[in-house]
Nucleic acid binder design. Structure first.
Length: 941
RNA sequence: GCCCAGAUGGUGGAAUUGGUAGACACGAGGGACUUAAAAUCCCUUGGCCAGUGAUGGCCGUACGGGUUCGAUUCCCGUUCCGGGCACCA
């Protein structure tokens, strides 16, 4: 009897041995080079894992195992992003403490993950909700509070340095309140009165990346703008560094582009515009506009202020007061969402006029909602001829339009392109105001030249200056929730004060209800023990608050991205109670070499994390400026749904091929009772009582289901649980198949149908090692040249493919190699002995078993990755092509060391070639080394 | 509107980056073994045409052009799908 591939026993055995032997435990070892592989840690949801979740983990596990076989000391940790909204909402509904459900979910995740055979070092597990962990989240927050961003050094500095500077300049205020207010404007973590995304449905504020098209990403509740006092992180200070850093890291172009868009750098010019309250009066003040099209200053026909701008009040004349007030009222009545969707032109004349410093013209100042208060200066110069928004506005209000580009037709629409030759700038020499004997003239220049020239002119004559704007906003860092990190902050007479560093962590207090209080305070308002005793340095009961030595503690908690921003540093040294990470561990592990996760975090976690790391880098805690050297975004695994077709108003189901003959309703059917699109009729009847008495119209005795690619979700009945695959095929087959499905970075549908191919492959690989009696087949025989060639071809291909994350093609190469070796009846230990090592990254369990069967001790993980030898790979058969009126091709042999020139000469003198070349003139010969010789001929004249 | 990435058999996907398109796998069809099923093994499988046959010819990588001896690959234009940004001046 041949030996059976008993994956269940093998996998159970090696899971036990890995744990016993601590195979995956990692320590800092300066004698070996490090490699840090990281997955974006999961939020442990109640639904457990589906086959899409482990995709990235498998991809990174393969790479981690490969790097280890190459001799690297590999860190590959795993943990949980444990704070989150679902657990809290479940708590509100059931009264169950979120910690309880979170821990239960974590246990379930762990069980599922363990089945797949990852090489995680679980001793380094972190959970963001654990006090040992969030101590350092709180610590980093306090460090940000005590830092400011030095524009000249372009890095964070201690806030004391800022205070000293102010004291030296004699500007340091006396009152504590004033000092606090001044510093707040510069701290990297600060309390700010800002417009926030308030989500009444969730009862909390949200960050910009948590809001899409005016509704919350989680739950889809409407979001409105509201002014609130919130903790913020001054992410915007790092805009330029965040942008520059992108050029130094190995991320996909698309995700870098997404971040560039999000940072939104735009270089422009700020220009001072004096204004008057009458059409021709003397200046009464000035405001500043921002433009990226300084070249269009001769085409300005009006100015526009954002309705929220503080200038609105100053420029409104008594005659226009009522109209302006009504307009402001109207704008306030509109939600952010309405403003985003509805772009109808609205606005009102303020009564005032701005004076264009270049032309001297008086142009009316309007107030309109299409100008945003939060960007630039909240004021613009309008050039209707060359900006589509200004154009729409000018048309609506009957304002003049002056074209400035030769050949541009602005009778129907504006000409926005930055290409062309400038004209009408000025229309006549006297329309350009003279400064220090110089008048600006742009006529005849290209637009790009004109922009540069105007910038120069404006700066030279003090009319304005060059200014870089970023769209990146400061991150709002507080949430009105329970299940998050508490702020280590108390309020001393209204002034936010940090709890001493030595007292951290401040642990999340117990509450009876997880909802906001009746007075509208956040859930932490329900906590009884939530006051800070300054003298005894501890958290005490709220009843002790006397505002002398006992003060109230902050009721907000931190947002989801707080805990996930520096977790990669904590994995380096997870049990250290003295520091986030010891300098030694940080120096050894540096940063993440390979980071694997979804691209949906492009404008959230991946920005915050880079910001957080840059801050810690400035502090000297992190050793590198960028946290993640290489980023791989695994694609989404979509579901493949199956359908049955019920004839309307009956309980009869008709097979796919016949459904067009009836009036049918497609119904989702559980993919787990369908195989190769054939429905298991009995399982279908048992699936739901409704179908117990169903009738079927079959094709060839089978019920064929329809299918469609949709999101993998419960409601589509297309969720495939990895546990089931492991049970039926084993973890190695699951791992192989997930990778065989297609490139890691690509989204692709899960289709269990194909899995048999991978299962068969493992069975064939297994069969290579055993004779018909079940004994080890490997012998000490000399390997045949063919088997050596097969082996070395495989080593070369697999090595190159793993390096480039082309796991699907390396598995294909394996399939070919195993088929070849089977045909060659290869039993040589020299060849077979390398196979377990080569397959180990992909299918570690079978690899260990075979490795052991060959008489090796220890783990295959500590084996050495085989090197290929080019001498076994030399191609001797090279194709010759002769071209004449179409293609004639045939194979011919060349010596292995032939140069291209020799190949050409040999080819043209070969007897096979001679018959094609007879009567022909050789026009051209092309030789590609190791490939092909192409001879182009034409008939001799 | 702007930016990025794509489009290859019935299906998932290969193609050493300019060198025999469709590797590998699934599915399908045919066959062997078997009382039968499962498992396993062998053959065929992009389309069209010719031939009893070995085989040969033509067409084919979204569409239309171009460069080249040679294009899935490079360039220009078009269509479609996906992703990001979006009254950002």
């Amino acid at each position: 009897m041949a030996k059976e591939y008993n994956f269940r026993e093998i996998e159970k055995k090696w899971h036990r041995l890995w744990t016993e032997r601590q195979t995956y435990k990692v320590t800092e070892d300066w004698s070996r080079r490090k490699y840090y592989v990281l997955n974006m840690f999961p939020y442990p949801s109640g639904a457990g894992l589906h086959v899409g979740h482990p995709l990235g983990y498998i991809a990174s596990d393969i790479y981690a195992r490969y790097k280890r076989l190459q001799g690297f000391n590999v860190l590959n940790p795993m943990g949980y992003d444990a704070y989150g909204l679902p657990a809290e909402q479940y708590a509100i509904k059931t009264g169950q403490h979120p910690e309880k459900t979170t821990f239960a979910n974590i246990d379930r995740y762990r069980q599922q993950l363990d089945k797949i055979g990852f090489c995680f070092d679980w001793d380094r597990e972190v959970r963001t909700c654990s006090p040992d962990y969030y101590k350092w989240t709180q610590w980093a927050f306090q460090k940000m509070f005590n830092s400011y961003f030095d524009e000249e050094l372009q890095k964070a500095q201690p806030i004391e340095k800022f205070i000293d500077k102010f004291k030296q300049e004699g500007k340091w205020p006396d009152s504590e309140q004033e000092q606090s207010d001044l510093l707040m404007q510069h701290r990297l973590a600060f309390l700010g009165e800002t417009m926030v995304n308030w989500c009444p449905g969730l009862g909390t504020v949200l960050a910009n990346d948590e809001v899409v098209e005016g509704v919350s990403v989680r739950g889809g509740y409407p979001v409105e703008q509201k002014k609130m006092r919130q903790w913020c992180l001054r992410v915007s200070a790092y805009s330029q560094r965040l942008l520059d850093g992108l050029d130094t890291i190995d991320w996909s172009e698309s995700i870098k582009e997404t971040q560039r868009n999000w940072i939104g750098r735009s270089e422009g010019t700020e220009v001072e515009i004096p204004y008057t309250l009458s059409p021709s009066g003397e200046p009464e003040g000035a405001f500043t506009i921002f433009t990226t099209r300084a070249d269009t200053m001769f085409g300005v026909t009006f100015f526009v202020l954002a309705p929220e701008s503080e200038l609105v009040d100053k420029v409104t004349t008594p005659e226009q007061r009522q109209a302006v007030d009504e307009y402001i009222k109207y704008v306030k009545s509109r939600t952010e969402r309405e403003r985003m969707i509805d772009h109808t032109v609205t606005g009102v004349f303020s009564g005032a006029y701005g004076i264009n410093p270049i032309t001297g013209d008086h142009c009316p100042i309007y107030i309109a909602e299409y100008v945003l208060a939060g960007y630039g200066t909240g004021a613009i110069m309008a050039v209707p001829a060359h900006d589509s928004r200004d154009y729409a506005f000018a048309r609506h209000f009957g304002l003049p339009i002056i074209p400035l580009v030769e050949g541009a037709d602005v009778s129907e629409e504006s000409y926005d392109a930055k290409e062309g030759i400038v004209m009408n700038s000025p229309v006549s020499p006297d329309k350009s105001v003279e400064y220090d004997g110089e008048r600006l003239c742009l006529n005849g220049l290209t637009i790009k030249q004109a922009i540069a020239e105007t910038k120069r002119f404006v700066q030279a004559h003090g009319l304005g200056h060059i200014k870089v704007n970023y769209r990146l906003r400061d991150a709002i860092f507080s949430r009105q929730r329970y299940w998050g990190e508490p702020f280590p902050v108390y309020y001393k007479h209204g002034i936010p004060t940090m709890i001493p560093e030595q007292c951290l962590p401040i642990e999340l207090p117990q509450v009876e209800k997880f909802l906001p209080t009746e007075t509208g305070e956040p859930p932490l308002g329900n906590a009884k023990v939530w006051a800070w005793d300054e003298q005894n340095r501890r958290v005490v009961d709220c009843s002790a608050i006397d505002n002398k030595t006992v003060f109230p503690i902050e009721l907000y908690t931190m947002p989801g991205f707080a805990g996930s921003s520096a977790y990669y540093l904590r994995y380096m040294d997870p049990h250290n109670n003295e520091a986030l990470v010891s300098p030694e561990a940080a120096a050894y592990w540096q940063n993440v070499d390979l980071y694997v996760g979804g691209s949906e975090h492009a404008t959230g976690h991946l920005i915050y994390s880079r910001f957080w790391n840059k801050f810690l880098f400035d502090l000297g805690v992190s050793k590198t400026d960028e946290p993640f050297k290489k980023l791989v975004n695994q694609g989404m695994i979509q579901g493949r749904s199956n359908f049955v077709y019920r004839i309307k108003e009956t309980n009869t189901f008709v097979s796919l091929g016949l459904k067009d003959q009836y009036d049918v309703t497609p119904i989702h059917v559980d993919v787990n009772i369908v195989k190769n699109d054939i429905l298991d009729l009995e399982a279908f009847k048992a699936w739901s009582p409704e179908y117990a008495t169903a009738d079927f119209i079959l094709e060839d005795g089978k019920y064929v289901c329809g299918w469609a690619i949709e999101k993998m979700s419960k409601s589509m009945y297309n969720v495939v649980n990895p546990d089931m695959i492991v049970e039926n095929y084993g973890a190695d087959t699951l791992r192989l198949y997930e990778m065989f499905l297609g490139p890691v970075e690509q989204s692709k549908p899960w289709d269990t149908n194909g899995i048999d191919g991978c299962f068969r492959f493992l069975k064939k690989l297994w069969a290579l090692f055993w004779d018909k009696d079940g004994n080890l087949a490997a012998t000490d025989n000399e390997p045949s040249p063919e088997s050596l060639k097969t082996l070395h071809k495989l080593i070369k291909k697999v090595t190159a493919d793993i390096e480039s994350f082309s796991y699907n093609t390396s598995i294909s190469a394996f399939m070919v190699a195993v088929n070849e070796l089977t045909q060659q009846k290869c039993t040589s230990r020299t060849v077979l002995g390398e196979l377990p090592v080569l397959i180990a990254p992909f299918a570690p369990h079978i690899a260990e078993e075979l490795w052991e069967a060959l008489g090796n001790t220890g783990s295959v993980c500590d084996a050495k990755w085989p090197q290929f030898d080019e001498k076994y790979l030399v191609e001797t058969s090279i194709k010759l092509g002769v071209q004449f009126n179409g293609k004639v091709r045939f194979d011919m042999l060349f010596p292995a060391d032939a140069t291209p020139e020799q190949m050409v000469s040999l080819a043209t003198s070969a007897p096979e070639a001679a018959k094609y070349l007879e009567g022909m003139q050789i026009v051209k010969t092309i030789a590609i080394p190791g490939r092909i010789v192409n001879i182009v001929v034409k008939p001799q004249a």
